[in-house]
Design a protein around this nucleic acid. Structure first.
Length: 840
RNA sequence: GGGCGCUUAGCUCAGUUGGUUAGAGCAUCUGCCUUACAAGCAGAGGGUCAAAGGUUCGAGUCCCUUAGCGCCCACCA
C-alpha cells in the first residue's frame, strides 16, 4: 500500500539502476527506427537548468516513442569543449603550483584527460538523477577514436575539394587564451571608449589631417591614410604623404571607397595587420602589413619604446606623449560596440595570422537550396527559427577553424618548407605536424553521424540517420545547428535530422538570464533533492510554448509537486479498492453512465495528448493531463465511484483510467509513474516498456457523455445557489421536473426524507435543462446578496440581448456552421430560463 | 541599419485552421476536518486581450500603422 504522502526521495531511489540493469534504455531491435543524439554537454563542469530542460524534452520524446513501439536510440555523449576546458585545466594546474606553459604537450594532455574522466562521472551522475533513458552502449566523446577518424576524414576531403585552405587573414585573436576565434565566438558589447583625434602632418608640415581612431596603439602599424576619392575636401591630397606621429616616417595618402566622407573626419588611418577592413584596403593598394602586438596582448618591437607594454597601458602612455608633442587634437568620449571573447571575456584583438579556414559559400548554398525542398529540408519547430539559419547561410563567411590550443583534434596537416601534406600520417620523418587543433565546433558539427559510426557504413548509421529530431536552444543555432546542417548535407547527402526542436533560455524569476556573475543560478540537483526529478521535469516542459524563454519559479515547481501528490493520493484510493481484481476486461454492457462519461473523457484525452505529443506541444499535453486527472478523474469520477465501490465494473474502470493516466504521464514523470504502476494488481512488465494508450472508439459514448455533463452542471448550480443564499443543512427539496436524481442526491447528501411535495416557505429554484427543483429554506437576504443578484441579472440580460441580436443577423444564420447556430439557440433558451428564475 | 519575439486576470503563462460570455496555476474572498489527499474539497470575484485603424456575419487570433520591452545578426575607422 502507498504511504499517505508522496515522498519523492523514496520513490526515485534505486529506480534508475533498475531500468539500467533491465536494459530498458537500449534499442529493442523491434519496430521502426527512431533516433535522437544528445547535444553533448561540455566536460567543463556541472549541468545547469538549461541542460535539464533540453534533455528532459528529449527523454519525453524517447520514452513516448519507445512506448509506441519504436526501436528507439538516444545516443549519449560529451564534448571536449576546447578553450573552456583548457582554461579550466590551466587554472587547476596553477592552483596546484604548476605552470601549465612549462609542461610538455603530452604531460599537459594527461592532466586534461584526468579532468575529463572526473567531470564525465559528474555528468553521468546528473543524467541519472534526471532519469534520462540514454543508450549507454552507444556513448561517445568528441575526442574518442571513432570521432577523431570522422574529423580527419572530413578535413582531408574538404581540403582535397578545395573547401579547406590555409591562409593569412585578419582573425579574432583572444590574447588571454592566445588563440584564434571564429566570428561566432566573439560577443559584441556596448563599451565606453573614445575617439582619439590625432594630427597626421603633411610632409611639408604646412598643415595636418585630423585622423580619429579608437585604438591609437595600432598607429605603429599604419601604412597609409585613406580618404574617399570623391571627397572634395581631401581628394587633391591623394598621392601625397603624411608623417606618422611618434614613428616619424612617411606614409602615403590613398584614395579608397572604404573612407566614408560622412563618418567622423572622413580620414581614416590604415593598419592592414590589425583591422579586417584595413586588410582589404591594404590588399587593394599593396600596402605593407606590420604586426605591432604580440600574441599575449603586449606591444612588440614595432611599437618602439612601448615594446613590452600591455596594449592598454601603451594606449595610455602614447596618448600622454602625443599630447606633450601637441599631436593630440582632442579626445571624444563615445560608446561603441567592442568584441569580447565568448570564453575568456577579454577584448578581442583583430590580428593578422596564418590560420586554416573552411570556405563557406559553396557549403552554405547547398543548405539554402536544400531548405527549399519540403521533403528533405530541416524542419524547424517553431518554424520561425528556419529564418535564423537561412540568414546565417546567406551572410556567412569563411570559418576560421584552427585554434592555438592543445585540447582538441590535432590538425592532420604536415609541413616541409612551403609544402603542405594533409592526411593521417606524415609521408616521412622530415615533415612536421601543425601544432594547432581544430575548433571544437568542427567535431560537434559531425555529431549526428559521427556518433553512429560514420565514415564506416555501420548498421546504426543505416537505421538511425538522419536522426528524427534534434533538440536545442535557439542560442546554439549559429554555433551548432547550422554547421551540422551543412556538414551533414555535404558528407551524407542528407539533412542530419528531420526536425529541429528549438526551446528558449531559462531565466530567473525576474526574467534575467541565469549567470555566474549575477549569482542567480539554480542547480537542478538542488531542485531534485527538494521536489524530485518528476516535479522538475513536468515543470520545465509544460510551462511555456516551444521556443519561448522560461522563468524559473520555485512556487511553480512546488505546485507541480502538489499535482503529483494529488495523483499519489488518488492512486492510493484506487489501490485500496481494487486489490482483489483478477482481470481487467470490462463488460461494456455493465457500464453506468458515470463510467461511460469518464471513459469517453479518457479517450478524448488520449487523442488530444497523442496529437500534441506528436506536434511537440508539451504545454498542451501538460494542461490537458492536469485537468483530466485533477478535475475529471479525482474531483468527479472518484467521488461518483465512492457510491459503487462494490461494483466490479467500477473497480475495472478505476484501474483502466488510472493505468492510462500513468502511461500518459510516464514520459514526463518516469519515477512516480513506475512506482504506482508496479503496484497495480494487473500490469505489464514495466511501465516504460508498456504500450502507450490508444484511442478506443468502442469506449466513447458521446450521448451519455453530454447528458452526464448536464447532470454535473446541475450539481454545480445547486451548490452555487446553496452557498450564495447561505442555505444551512435543514433544507427541503421539491422536485419540479421528474428525472434521475439518484446520483445527484447522493453527491449532495440529500436524504429521501428531505424530499417533500409542497411547502409555503421560501423556495430557491435550481434548474439546468431537464433537471429542475426547489430548495425550500428560510433565509435572511442581505443587501449584499441583493446587489449580487442584481449584478447577475444585469449580465444575463446583456448576454441575452447580444445573442438575440446575433441570431437575428441573417448573414450569421447563412454563413455560420449549422451546429454552432443550434448551440447558440440552445444557450439562449437556457439563459432566458435562468433569468426567469432569478426574477422569481 | 536588418530581422525576430513579446505586450492577455494582482503575478507567471496558455490560447490549434478566425466561431458560445477569453482559460490555467499561484494569489484573493466565502463555506467546509465529506473516512485518497487541509500540500485538500465546494463555490465566487477579477481581463474594453498594449493603442488606433482595416478585412469579416464574427477578430486575442488575419492585414496596416504606432508605442514600450527583449533577443539575434551586421557594424564606421
Amino acid at each position: 500500500m502507498l504511504d499517505k504522502k508522496y515522498n519523492h526521495l523514496l520513490v526515485e531511489e534505486g529506480k534508475y539502476q533498475k531500468w539500467l540493469d533491465n536494459g530498458y534504455f537500449e534499442p529493442t531491435g523491434k519496430g521502426d527506427y527512431y533516433a535522437i543524439v544528445i547535444p553533448p554537454p561540455n566536460v567543463t563542469g556541472k549541468l545547469h537548468l538549461g541542460h535539464a530542460w533540453d534533455t528532459t524534452l528529449q527523454d519525453i520524446l524517447i520514452r513516448f516513442k519507445r512506448m509506441q513501439g519504436y526501436n528507439v536510440l538516444w545516443v549519449p555523449g560529451m564534448d571536449h569543449a576546447g578553450i573552456a576546458t583548457q582554461a579550466k585545466v590551466d587554472a587547476k594546474l596553477k592552483q596546484m603550483g604548476i605552470n601549465p606553459r612549462e609542461l610538455k604537450r603530452e604531460e599537459w594532455l594527461k592532466y586534461a584527460w584526468d579532468w575529463k574522466e572526473e567531470y564525465a562521472l559528474n555528468i553521468h551522475d546528473q543524467w541519472a538523477k534526471l532519469g534520462l533513458s540514454l543508450a549507454y552502449s552507444r556513448e561517445r566523446f568528441t575526442l574518442d577514436e571513432g570521432l577523431s577518424k570522422a574529423v580527419k576524414t572530413v578535413f582531408k576531403k574538404l581540403y582535397e575539394e578545395g573547401l579547406i585552405y590555409r591562409g593569412e587573414r585578419i582573425i579574432n585573436w583572444d590574447p588571454l587564451a592566445m588563440t584564434a576565434l571564429s566570428n561566432e565566438e566573439v560577443i559584441y558589447k556596448e563599451t565606453k571608449g573614445a575617439f582619439y583625434h590625432l594630427k597626421y602632418y603633411l610632409e611639408d608640415k604646412s598643415s595636418y589631417l585630423d585622423v580619429a581612431t579608437t585604438r591609437p596603439e595600432t598607429l605603429f602599424g599604419d601604412t597609409a591614410v585613406a580618404v574617399n576619392p570623391r571627397d572634395e575636401r581631401y581628394n587633391h591630397l591623394i598621392g601625397k604623404q603624411v608623417i606618422l606621429p611618434v614613428v616619424n616616417k612617411l606614409i602615403p595618402i590613398i584614395g579608397d571607397e572604404h573612407a566614408d566622407p560622412e563618418f567622423g573626419t572622413g580620414v581614416v588611418k590604415i593598419t592592414p595587420a590589425h583591422d579586417p577592413n584595413d586588410f582589404e584596403v591594404g590588399n587593394r593598394h599593396n600596402l605593407e602589413r606590420i604586426i605591432v602586438i604580440n600574441p599575449d596582448g603586449t606591444m612588440n618591437d614595432a611599437a618602439l619604446k612601448y615594446a613590452g607594454m600591455d596594449r592598454f597601458a601603451c594606449r595610455e602612455e602614447l596618448i600622454k606623449d602625443l599630447e606633450k608633442e601637441d599631436l593630440l587634437i582632442n579626445i571624444e568620449k563615445i560608446t561603441h560596440n567592442v568584441g569580447y571573447s565568448e570564453r575568456t571575456d577579454v577584448m578581442v584583438e583583430p590580428y593578422l595570422s596564418k590560420q586554416w579556414f573552411v570556405k563557406m559559400r559553396p557549403l552554405a548554398d547547398k543548405v539554402l537550396a536544400n531548405q527549399l525542398a519540403k521533403n528533405t529540408k530541416v524542419n524547424f519547430v517553431p518554424a520561425r527559427f528556419e529564418k535564423v539559419m537561412n540568414h546565417w547561410m546567406e551572410i556567412t563567411y569563411d570559418w576560421c577553424i584552427s585554434r592555438q590550443l592543445w585540447w582538441g583534434h590535432r590538425i592532420p596537416a604536415w609541413y616541409k618548407g612551403d609544402e603542405i601534406f594533409v592526411g593521417d600520417q606524415a609521408p616521412d620523418e622530415t615533415w612536421v605536424q601543425d601544432p594547432d587543433v581544430l575548433d571544437t565546433w568542427f567535431s560537434s558539427a559531425l555529431w549526428p553521424f559521427s556518433t553512429l559510426g560514420w565514415p564506416d557504413a555501420t548498421e546504426d548509421l543505416k537505421h538511425y540517420y538522419p536522426n528524427n529530431v534534434l533538440v536545442t536552444g535557439y542560442d546554439i543555432i549559429p554555433f551548432w545547428v547550422n554547421r551540422m546542417t551543412f556538414q551533414g548535407l555535404h558528407f551524407t547527402g542528407q539533412r542530419p535530422f528531420k526536425d529541429c526542436l528549438i526551446h528558449g533560455l531559462i531565466r530567473d524569476k525576474e526574467g534575467r538570464k541565469m549567470s555566474k556573475s549575477l549569482g542567480n543560478g539554480v542547480d537542478p540537483m538542488d531542485v531534485i533533492e527538494k521536489y524530485g526529478a518528476d516535479a522538475l521535469r513536468f515543470f520545465l516542459t509544460t510551462q511555456t510554448a516551444m521556443g519561448m524563454d522560461l522563468r524559473y519559479d520555485e512556487e511553480k515547481v512546488k505546485s507541480t509537486w502538489n499535482f503529483i501528490n494529488k495523483l499519489w493520493n488518488a492512486s492510493r484510493f484506487v489501490l485500496m479498492n481494487i486489490e482483489d481484481l483478477k482481470d481487467d476486461l470490462i463488460d461494456l454492457k455493465t457500464l453506468k453512465e458515470e463510467d461511460k462519461w469518464i471513459l469517453t473523457s479518457m479517450n478524448e484525452t488520449i487523442k488530444i495528448v497523442t496529437k500534441n505529443m506528436e506536434k511537440y506541444e508539451f504545454n498542451n499535453v501538460g494542461s490537458k493531463l492536469y485537468s483530466f486527472i485533477w478535475n475529471d478523474f479525482c474531483d468527479n469520477y472518484i467521488e461518483f465511484a465512492k457510491f459503487s465501490l462494490d461494483d466490479i465494473t467500477t473497480k475495472k474502470v478505476l484501474l483502466k483510467v488510472l493505468t492510462n493516466i500513468l502511461k500518459m504521464l510516464h514520459p514526463f514523470m518516469p519515477y512516480v509513474t513506475d512506482e504506482i504502476y508496479s503496484m497495480l494488481p494487473i500490469h505489464e512488465e514495466n511501465i516504460m516498456i508498456s504500450k502507450y494508450p490508444l484511442y478506443e472508439k468502442k469506449e466513447v459514448f458521446k450521448e451519455t457523455y453530454n447528458s452526464f455533463k448536464d447532470k454535473q452542471e446541475f450539481i454545480k448550480n445547486f451548490r452555487t445557489i446553496k452557498l450564495e443564499n447561505k442555505i444551512g443543512k435543514d433544507f427541503k427539496i421539491k422536485i419540479n421536473k421528474e428525472n434521475d436524481y439518484d446520483l445527484i442526491f447522493k453527491l449532495l447528501r440529500i436524504d429521501q426524507d428531505q424530499i417533500i411535495n409542497s411547502s409555503n416557505k421560501k423556495a430557491f429554484k435550481v434548474s439546468y435543462k431537464d433537471y429542475d427543483l426547489d430548495i425550500i429554506y428560510e433565509s435572511i437576504i442581505t443587501e449584499e446578496d441583493k446587489l449580487l443578484k442584481e449584478k447577475q441579472i444585469k449580465s444575463l440580460k446583456n448576454s441575452i440581448e447580444r445573442r438575440e441580436k446575433l441570431l437575428s443577423n441573417e448573414n450569421y444564420l447563412k454563413k455560420a456552421p449549422k451546429d454552432l447556430v443550434a448551440k447558440e439557440k440552445e444557450t439562449l433558451a437556457l439563459e432566458k430560463d435562468k433569468l426567469a428564475h432569478l426574477l422569481g
